[in-house]
């Protein structure tokens, strides 16, 4: 019999992902579960799932999870962490959830320095509802609500969340990575691990991850990932903004 050299992380269930083929959410879920396994935190983790494509995240995570109303994940995470200060609390959110409807909760949770980790998946649009403009939609990007492309005259410019969060004094860690290529995936995993470690040391950590939405972008997954590296990361530079 051959040795198993690649397996599902223990913190992950065997439920098949509902995500579109090639979607970054699957990769990011897996990275979170790998880090939780490596840090031996499965029994100490409580996550909050957003409203958006990752609304069913609790089907895949094999640890305690609470759902939150659209945009309110950071507030729910605050409530959980204040009750269980010794647990690892993760708020997993997309761009509409975190940067649009939940902007107030996002900023104020960071500003209070809540000892949680926010995983922010930026795919530059509202995926689940069919590809509308998000606060992160690039200038010129065509979505179902910007049929001629995002016009900064009327829709403003995409918000750079990792930089904005980094400007808040109580924040311990703010970083932007991508899961568009192998290098990015490795960096993302490192960032997640760092973020968890800093949370457990008593700080707020924020990991923004550029991820493709090939279906709504109208591309195949390979081209969508290439688009992240060549185009999206140009406006949303990868890097650590606060540590």
């Amino acid at each position: 019999m051959a040795d198993i050299i690649f397996d599902r992380p223990k913190s992950m269930t065997s439920a098949p992902f509902h995500y579109c083929p090639g979607c970054g959410h699957s990769v990011i879920h897996r990275l979170i579960c790998e880090v939780i396994d490596e840090m031996n935190l499965r029994g100490k983790t409580i996550a909050v799932a957003p409203v958006g494509c990752a609304v069913l995240a609790y089907d895949y995570f094999d640890f305690d999870v609470s759902e939150a109303a659209h945009g309110r994940a950071a507030a729910v995470a605050t409530g959980i962490k204040r009750v269980h200060p010794d647990k690892l609390v993760i708020s997993y959110q997309g761009d509409g959830d975190l940067a649009s409807i939940g902007m107030a909760e996002t900023i104020h949770t960071a500003n209070r320095g809540e000892k949680i980790t926010v995983i922010f998946v930026n795919n530059t649009n509202y995926g689940m509802t069919g590809g509308q403009m998000a606060p992160t939609t690039l200038v010129g990007q065509v979505t179902t609500t910007t049929p001629k492309g995002r016009n900064p005259e009327t829709e403003g410019y995409p918000i750079r969340m990792a930089e904005m969060i980094a400007s808040l004094q109580a924040v311990k860690y703010s970083v932007r990575t991508s899961v568009a290529d192998f290098k990015g995936i490795v960096q993302t995993k490192k960032a997640i691990k760092k973020a968890f470690e800093l949370q457990l040391e008593g700080g707020y950590s924020f990991v923004e991850i550029l991820s493709n939405c090939s279906t709504n972008w109208g591309m195949n997954p390979v081209d969508a990932n290439k688009h992240i590296v060549e185009k999206v990361a140009e406006y949303f530079p990868l890097g650590t903004f606060k540590e």
Partner: peptide, 8 residues
Amino acid sequence: NMVYGASA
């Protein structure tokens, strides 16, 4: 929503 989290 903080109440939601703490109650959960």
